[in-house]
């Protein structure tokens, strides 16, 4: 069955290998370039309170912004590709082409057929993405130091393999339910994006209760740069948040006027009303806890998808 799995999926393996190689090359090239600039420009030894740091940082960010974004998008797509092209057709293609009538009447049980394929494919996916994540951690270290470690949260650490395994499980489950490769691919894309977006924007900020940081013009400040600032709001005397338009109604000094005098008048207005700025954030030291929580969520989702659908496939389908 191991040979059969390999022989059936060897074209996919080849293409995946090529894609992976391309991504690795990009990572190696830009990573080396970033590290080299980070060290040679003096950023590495720069402490944040030095004025020249800001300038160096600006140059660094401008230089690598585009390539980092590009690579981030590439890396975020990889798990989805696993789901679309390895997971979705796994059972769906057998059913579509009716080859299940051939392979399920050889001497091997359906459970063993599916189980072996699942184990092998998820094993290979895991190994590939764990290897990849080590590389992305190396690649992103200068960027994380300059901006924030949270900036590359999605493409390194434990979550990257977790997204890949989830996409694989989602693809396989979709294939079993839809019984058609194209439909399964469509379902995989939609659901994968939905789940990732939902968890990233609605759940992740609240995995643990966020901290808050209050500041005003008298007591300026902000969360540390390496923390993850989720949102910044203006609050009134009683701690109630105000929208920007509400603030503009109460303190209209800045409307249509950008002069220093208008700005001072604005500050006075805010102070008179007791307005303050409240930042909601997650501290940097929670990075790995959050990665662990998110990975567990995705793994549980994967199990929730695979357990009922594999039962269905081994017992019910014709």
């Amino acid at each position: 069955m191991i040979w059969v799995t390999w022989r059936q999926h060897r074209l996919e393996a080849l293409i995946a290998g090529i894609l992976l190689t391309i991504v690795v090359v990009f990572l190696l090239v830009t990573g080396a370039s970033m590290i080299s600039m980070y060290q040679s420009s003096g950023l590495a030894s720069c402490s944040p309170d030095q004025a020249v740091c800001g300038h160096l940082e600006g140059t660094f960010i401008n230089h690598f912004n585009v390539s980092v974004n590009f690579i981030t998008v590439m890396l975020s797509t990889l798990p989805l590709l696993v789901g679309m092209f390895i997971g979705a057709p796994l059972v769906a293609r057998e059913l579509e082409q009716r080859t299940h009538r051939l392979v399920w009447t050889q001497s091997i049980s359906r459970a063993r057929w599916l189980g072996t394929k699942l184990l092998l494919l998820s094993g290979v996916t895991l190994v590939a993405f764990v290897g990849l994540t080590f590389l992305t951690m190396w690649w992103s270290s200068p960027w994380n130091a300059v901006i924030t470690p949270w900036a590359t949260y999605d493409v390194r650490g434990i979550v990257l393999p977790a997204y890949a395994l989830f996409a694989l499980a989602l693809g396989i489950a979709a294939g079993i339910l839809a019984r058609r490769s194209v439909a399964a691919i469509g379902i995989t894309i939609v659901l994968f994006l939905l789940v990732r977006v939902a968890i990233t924007f609605w759940l992740r900020p609240y995995f643990l209760p966020p901290l808050t940081f209050i500041s005003s013009f008298e007591q300026p400040g902000a969360p540390h740069r390496s923390d993850w600032t989720i949102k910044v709001e203006t609050i009134d005397r009683n701690g109630q948040p105000l929208s920007d338009s509400q603030v503009s109604q109460i303190c209209p000094q800045l409307i249509g006027n950008g002069s220093a005098a208008a700005f001072t008048a604005f500050q006075t207005c805010e102070k008179n009303h007791g307005f303050q700025s409240r930042s909601t954030y997650q501290p940097a030291d929670r990075f790995w806890i959050f990665q662990a929580i998110e990975s567990i969520i995705f793994l549980l989702l994967s199990l929730a998808l695979l357990v009922p659908t594999t039962w269905l496939a081994t017992r019910k389908i014709t």
């Binding site: 069955m1 040979w3 059969v4 022989r7 392979v103 050889q106 001497s107 091997i108």
Partner: peptide, 12 residues
């Protein structure tokens, strides 16, 4: 390859 598949999946 089909024969190989047969060999791998059938003890007889």
């Amino acid at each position: 390859d089909m024969l190989m598949l047969g060999q791998k999946l059938n003890p007889t």
